[in-house]
């Protein structure tokens, strides 16, 4: 009797221990529109702060400001210089070029789907799009704008003055209203109609068998979805993914500058993967030219392993699986949305 009880207890202990230790992946049914996949549906409504409801007047004003190079010190750089809609709302460069074409340390992140982000910038130093918008204008290495001079110029311009009065009546022209208008426009830059999105919504023909196999790997054995998670293919988190540049003599410490916790040394924010085929080069340092190079990097489990994220593991993929994963990533791009440039007011 005692022996039986001991055996039963040991079995219970074993089962409980095993279930605790198991890092089970989510269970999906890989059928178009299946309810188990719902978490991947990106909401149509982009979240916005209570005090900046995206009205038409605000979005139109934000669009003017976004494309106006007179928001920079030399009058030759707009937000769109680094976040160009024809280049995936980025710039196609490994790392950004700022004032006087100075090469900067990090890649220009895409604007696509940033409205869904819970935190902004590669190192998360800005909480919201409103919080971020003035940063590049004020940075001497970026747009290098004297913002007091900017507000005076905008206030003296009849078209802008009218536009601000319509968008933010009684609120004036200042850092608050300029930021809010730009943020309202940026929230309109959305990708949620890729073939993957259509397949998730129930269109059986939207994805090929190969792409579905790639998705299975993405959420399964390859472990990509641990960080590039639903619904926006980001966990709004920070990881050191072992890039070669972290082995430099004075590497970019990334998130560590904001949160001095060891794990954050060399950690950067997980970017979305929607419209990924348009936003290369890849990684915060622009060190991967192609998606194939990105996959290669992850298969190796990173290059520099100092302070590597514990989520980074070597991934074994045969050549056909690698092709499947690549095909899936390529299915994350929405049809191109033509952008009409705003009519900017004369000086």
């Amino acid at each position: 009797m005692v022996n039986k009880l001991i055996t039963a207890l040991l079995v219970t202990v074993f089962v409980l221990t095993s279930s605790q230790a198991m890092a089970a992946k989510k269970k999906y049914v890989f059928k178009a529109g299946h309810k188990s996949l719902r978490e991947w549906r990106l909401p149509k409504r982009v979240p916005y702060p209570r005090d900046n409801k995206p009205t038409r007047a605000r979005i139109e004003l934000g669009k003017m400001l976004f494309f106006d190079p007179r928001l920079s010190g030399d009058g030759n750089m707009s937000c769109a210089s680094c976040h160009n809609p024809v280049l995936g709302w980025s710039d196609g460069l490994p790392t950004a070029k700022g004032f006087k074409s100075k090469v900067l340390g990090r890649a220009s992140p895409t604007i696509i789907n940033t409205g869904y982000n819970l935190i902004q910038m590669w190192d998360g130093r800005k909480k919201s799009l409103e919080d971020q918008a003035m940063g590049p204008m004020e940075a001497t290495v970026e747009m290098n704008m004297n913002t007091e001079k900017l507000f005076k110029w905008l206030s003296a311009n009849e078209t802008y003055l009218r536009a601000f009065k319509r968008a933010y009546p009684g609120k004036g022209i200042n850092a608050d209203t300029v930021s809010k208008a730009i943020a309202a426009f940026e929230r309109t830059v959305v990708s949620r109609n890729s073939r993957f999105d259509r397949w998730i919504r129930g269109n059986k023909k939207a994805m090929t068998k190969q792409e579905i196999n790639g998705f299975k790997l993405f959420v399964g054995r390859a472990g990509c979805a641990d960080c590039h998670s639903a619904p926006n293919f980001t966990d709004d988190g920070f990881h050191n993914i072992g890039l070669k540049s972290f082995g430099d003599s004075e590497p970019d410490m990334g998130r560590y500058a904001q949160r001095p916790v060891k794990l954050m040394k060399g950690a950067f924010k997980t970017p979305t993967l929607r419209d990924i085929t348009r936003t290369g080069p890849y990684f915060h340092d622009g060190s991967a030219e192609t998606l194939d190079e990105v996959i290669e990097h992850y298969m190796k489990g990173g290059v520099v392993t100092t302070n590597l994220s514990p989520s980074m593991k070597k991934i074994k993929l045969c050549s056909s699986e690698r092709e499947d994963l690549l095909a899936f990533l390529q299915a994350l791009t929405s049809p191109y949305v033509h952008v009409t440039l705003p009519k900017l007011p004369p000086n």
Partner: peptide
Amino acid sequence: DPFFHNVFSLSPAKTFDLGS
């Protein structure tokens, strides 16, 4: 959760970092 977490505090009353 089926992925790594960390817990830390930088508050003066108790500073700690539990790793991942």
